[in-house]
Design a binder for these strands. Structure first.
Length: 492
RNA sequence: CGGGGCGUAGCGUAGCCCGGUAUCGCGCCUGGUUUGGGACCAGGAGGUCGUCAGUUCGAAUCUGGCCGCCCCGACCA
């Protein structure tokens, strides 16, 4: 099965695609550019959703749901936003099919069922939501409005990649409205921090927080904050964004409120989102040549128990021990899978669960029954140890914590090694050639320089890091003065 | 939309140049032996060769149209 998995070094893209399919996460659909998320992959996404949803609720947000379709007139109300998405929209123009007289048994679009106004399938929901907020907001007493929705969106991308860029994807989008600019900015930054915490604490993936340059900014936003992660092939991945919208959408949709002084003013907005792209990030941040490596906090199965037996009788004796052990582990919050299939051999099961990234594997055979032991194997380091059966229930939860910490440290060490400070354009290009990864370099702040560097090297400004220290220098490209370093990389 | 490649069993492929009804591996099914790191042996099932037309006694193979997919670019808040 997984034996044919190419190694990461040979061809990272190929390896990624194979892994996604072999680990039972997802596959390409017959529908153009779309993806089928398989049950195992979806169960990981559900764990992400649960953790994120709790973090949103803990910061005062509530969930709601808005329509899939956006009338074209609403969609175009915020001009920059509409322009930004115009090239990748799916549009509903008709509402009925009929039998095709030319092709018996086939259907055709009924030309008589043309819509008065086209409906855009949401590529993002600012328009439909802000048109609704207009009705909900009259006074400062209605603010802040802190709403999130879990939904699917459609962006007609020309080239797609499983999880990283698909024509339809699942995400969450938060849309908030505030009475002051300061409060909206605070919200934007707060949600950026929520995303960063989620990435680091749950996904065990270190991220760099920053602000996008003008060229990479969300259309319609005044500022786009983002978290940027580094994948094992040295390419960057934008893992989440949080936008300060200013009053742009409020003005476009005429959302005004009466403040305490009784004066009308436009509300201040934010929007923020993460998507199933995080699944791609998770895979590319930790996996190895044996397959997926899941952080325990997001693993749908924490512990898999593989019995080793020749006869029914042996399996029965093992099952008695396993039932007790599994029950105790479940009592400690572990998700336990007892793989008692008699259709596969132990070696096959070991390989299969490694491919699926299960953090801890226990093996129990006749030898262990005699000695009162269990073989405990951890996925991240592939270390195996014999443990007393009586100790397992206490040790496994600790081991899960260690694995969570270890894979974070490993990813952090990798990223630290892969950040290069460079001061000349030659060095800049050399790093991209031989090492890749993140590059911290001075930039003169102009879109022209940014575009020229992108054109020549394919590297883009991932962000202007929030923790960038003031440091006078010269732009690597133009030689003009610069006050701080920005983060460059080739990106997904 | 440009440049390149490909369409043959559930998956991956050989055959195509040089025309004679399709090769191999994985997987699947049956039986047996196995079972502490992806088992082995034997037998078996499974195909409108993307599609339409043309050339031919005969087309997976040659010719043309169409459809679909992949890679590179363009695109990707």
């Amino acid at each position: 099965m997984g034996k044919e998995l190419p190694t990461r070094r040979e061809d990272y893209s190929l390896w990624y695609n194979e892994l996604v399919k072999k680990a039972d996460l997802a596959e390409h659909s017959d529908v153009r550019g779309c993806m089928v998320i398989k049950p195992y992959g979806f169960s990981i996404w559900e764990k992400m959703q649960q953790a994120l949803d709790k973090m949103f609720k803990d910061t005062g947000h509530v969930n709601a749901y808005f329509p899939l379709f956006v009338p074209k007139s609403l969609f175009e109300a915020e001009e920059k936003n509409a322009e930004g998405f115009a090239k990748e929209c799916a549009i509903v123009t008709h509402y009925r099919l009929k039998s095709d007289p030319q092709n018996p048994g086939k259907l055709m679009v009924d030309p008589d069922a043309k819509l008065e106004e086209e409906l855009v399938v949401r590529p993002t929901s600012e328009a439909i939501i802000w048109s609704t907020y207009k009705k909900w907001i009259q006074s400062y007493r209605d603010l802040p409005l802190l709403i999130n929705q879990w939904a699917n969106v459609v962006r007609w991308e020309m080239r797609t990649r499983l999880f990283l860029r698909t024509a339809e994807f699942l995400w969450q989008e938060g849309h908030t409205a505030h009475s002051t600019s300061e409060e909206a900015v605070r919200e934007t930054v707060q949600m950026l921090n929520v995303y960063a915490d989620f990435a680091e604490k749950f996904m065990a993936m270190p991220v760099i927080k920053g602000v996008k340059s003008e060229g990479e900014r969300f259309p319609g936003a005044l500022d786009t904050y983002c978290i940027e992660a580094l994948m094992q092939d040295g390419k960057a991945l934008q893992a989440g964004t949080s936008h300060f919208l200013g009053q742009n959408f409020a003005k476009a949709f005429d959302v005004k409120f009466a403040n305490k002084e009784g004066k009308l003013d436009y509300v201040w907005g934010t929007s923020w989102g993460v998507s199933t792209r995080l699944m791609g990030a998770l895979i590319m941040a930790h996996s190895d040549d044996e397959g997926l490596v899941l952080p325990p906090k997001l693993a749908p199965i924490h512990v898999v128990i593989v019995p080793i037996f020749r006869t029914e009788e042996e399996l029965t004796r093992i099952t008695i021990e396993v039932d007790t052990l599994a029950e105790t582990l479940r009592g400690k919050g572990c998700t336990v899978k007892f793989d008692n299939r008699d259709t596969q051999k132990p070696g096959f099961k070991f390989a299969e669960w490694e491919l699926k990234g299960v953090p801890v594997r226990l093996a129990i055979g006749p030898r262990d029954l005699e000695n009162g032991t269990v073989e405990v194997a951890r996925r991240d380091t592939k270390e195996k140890q014999l443990m007393k059966l009586s100790d397992v229930a206490a040790e496994v939860p600790k081991l899960l914590d260690q694995i969570q910490e270890n894979i974070y440290q490993r990813a952090l060490n990798f990223r630290t090694e892969m950040i290069s400070k460079v001061d000349t354009y030659e060095e800049f290009k050399r790093i991209l050639d031989v090492k890749t990864g993140f590059i911290l370099a001075h930039w003169d702040g102009t879109p022209e320089t940014e575009a020229a560097i992108k054109e020549e090297t394919k590297a883009t400004i991932r962000c202007i890091p929030l923790d960038a220290v003031d440091e006078p220098g010269m732009c690597v490209y133009s030689g003009k003065p610069s006050s701080k370093r920005v983060l460059f990389a080739r990106a997904y």
